[in-house]
């Protein structure tokens, strides 16, 4: 009987947490819309969240492109279709790797920084101080960060894919010797703007919402101690990565068929 009661308590707790986080998301979304009236705050955060993630995104994109170039050539060459390397790389990046890997990198670089920043503001009573000044911390601190992350994520994913294509071009065309004309023309002919690039952009926007929401929510709800902030930072990376990968599977199924 006690175990049934414990299970019930656990289930109720889960529903309460879900409800609480959903209300948090709704309020954050509403305040984010209002925060568009203060673009200076968003631009400031866009610099911290977007611009400062640029180096890790471009360098990672370049190396992923290198590897795709090498692995793609190895496989395609077996079937005598090495000219399709450009198409393979462009489709892999725009449909899958661009949005997913950049979201994972974003969670590691910008997500942790958002969680730690908000958590430390809470631990240092900065959020309480703001509240006591009659300023809503969610509107002033969280909402501009949320909007900035939503803008930054698709741009970073696009940058990742573009640099990735350049990386595979360097390896495939410049080093291995795949025909440059075939590389680019097959890519141009085979990549569909709406189905491939458009869906990739939608994916990265959804991943942006996921990463930003988790980072801000976990930071805001962190225990206001150094240990609490440290735990929250780890939780952000773990939760964002798992949710992004889970959503990616569902979105891929919905967008590209299967379900």
């Amino acid at each position: 009987m006690n175990q049934i009661a414990a299970l019930g308590t656990w289930a109720l707790g889960c529903f309460a947490s879900l409800g609480f986080s959903f209300r948090f998301l709704v309020r954050l979304t509403w305040l984010s819309i209002l925060s568009l009236g203060r673009p200076r705050l968003i631009v400031e955060q866009l610099y911290f969240i977007g611009n400062r993630s640029l180096s890790i995104i471009t360098i990672s994109g370049l190396f992923v492109g290198f590897v795709l170039g090498l692995q793609g050539y190895y496989t395609l060459e077996r079937y005598g279709s090495a000219e399709a390397l450009g198409l393979l790389v462009a489709l892999s990046l725009s449909r899958e790797l661009g949005p997913v890997v950049s979201a994972l990198l974003f969670a590691g670089r910008a997500g942790t920084s958002l969680t730690a920043g908000i958590g430390l503001m809470k631990a240092g009573e900065q959020l309480a101080a703001m509240e006591m000044m009659g300023v809503d911390p969610m509107a002033r601190v969280l909402a501009p960060r949320f909007v900035a992350a939503l803008i930054a994520m698709p741009l970073l994913a696009a940058m990742f894919s573009a640099v990735g294509v350049m990386g595979s071009w360097i390896v495939g065309v410049q080093i291995i010797g795949v025909d440059a004309g075939s590389f680019w023309s097959q890519m141009q002919a085979g990549v569909d703007i709406r189905n491939d690039i458009g869906n990739g952009v939608i994916k990265s926007m959804i991943f942006g919402v996921i990463c930003a929401f988790i980072a801000l929510f976990v930071g805001h709800e962190a225990t206001a101690t150094p240990e609490g902030v440290s735990r929250a930072t780890t939780d952000t990376v773990v939760a964002s990565s798992l949710v992004v990968l889970g959503f990616d599977f569902m979105l891929t199924g919905l967008m590209f068929g299967g379900f």
Partner: peptide, 30 residues
């Protein structure tokens, strides 16, 4: 709350803002 000025135990200054901007914060917001 605008009628209340509160000094927190450790100051609770906004660490990403300068001394000037910290003091200007309530004026700019309200």
């Amino acid at each position: 709350r605008r009628k209340i000025g509160m000094l927190f135990q450790h100051g609770a200054l906004f660490t990403d803002l300068s001394v000037y901007d910290n003091v200007a914060f309530p004026l700019r917001e309200h």
